[in-house]
Design a protein around this nucleic acid. Sequence first.
DNA 1: CCGTATCCTCATCGATACTG
DNA 2: CAGTATCGATGAGGATACGG
Lengths: 115, 115
Amino acid sequence: MRAVRDALDLLGGKWKLPIIVGLVHGPKRFKQLQREVAGITAKMLSKELKELEVNGLVTRYVQADAAPVAVTYALAEHGTTLYPVIEALQGWGQQHRRFIMHAPAVALAEPVLVA
Amino acid sequence: MRAVRDALDLLGGKWKLPIIVGLVHGPKRFKQLQREVAGITAKMLSKELKELEVNGLVTRYVQADAAPVAVTYALAEHGTTLYPVIEALQGWGQQHRRFIMHAPAVALAEPVLVA
DNA sequence: CCGTATCCTCATCGATACTG
DNA sequence: CAGTATCGATGAGGATACGG
């Protein structure tokens, strides 16, 4: 249980996993990544990337000699261990979507009395 | 990606998954469940259970004729489809814990320069 | 026992403007 | 391009008291 909480603390929030997913198909520059993760602001992307980096999930590469500076982000090796988690969540999300189709919310809210 | 977001919206937050886990070993009464999920207040437990119920993950059984009223919560069948998700998160949480041991945060924060 | 009502605090997130 | 600074809104979550 503690492990589940740990995972949720690290991956919870609105953006962590979308960012990871955005990096799955290879390294990306900051702006590129911001376009990939629809709706995220630069502030959020920066903050979230910093946290992911500290936790060893993402690596930040700086090409300092260029002007303007070029920064690239990539999934660290430890970041790739998230694949099963992402697949599980994605699979369940789809499954749940199908479930919702066939089970109207009204029926779910009705009280179940027991003798 | 949309599916991952859906899953996170439903299972995100501090308590949803801990509650589900608390119900894995069989149905529980409200108070019983509150003891199981360490630290949760009655307000939160009530609110979260309501949401889980609306989404078809948990079923609420009311034994009305007793005094005081007895209410039991159980994982709905659709709730059991979360097992793979929980296992994935739990497995990753443990793996990450081991990873942290061997990779001090200091090393992770250092800039990586590229030619 | 099983909650709800009320009040409150704080983290999260967004918008906008600005810098190296 | 790759961010940071500042301000502000919102909502999750907690404390406490009370009701059926």
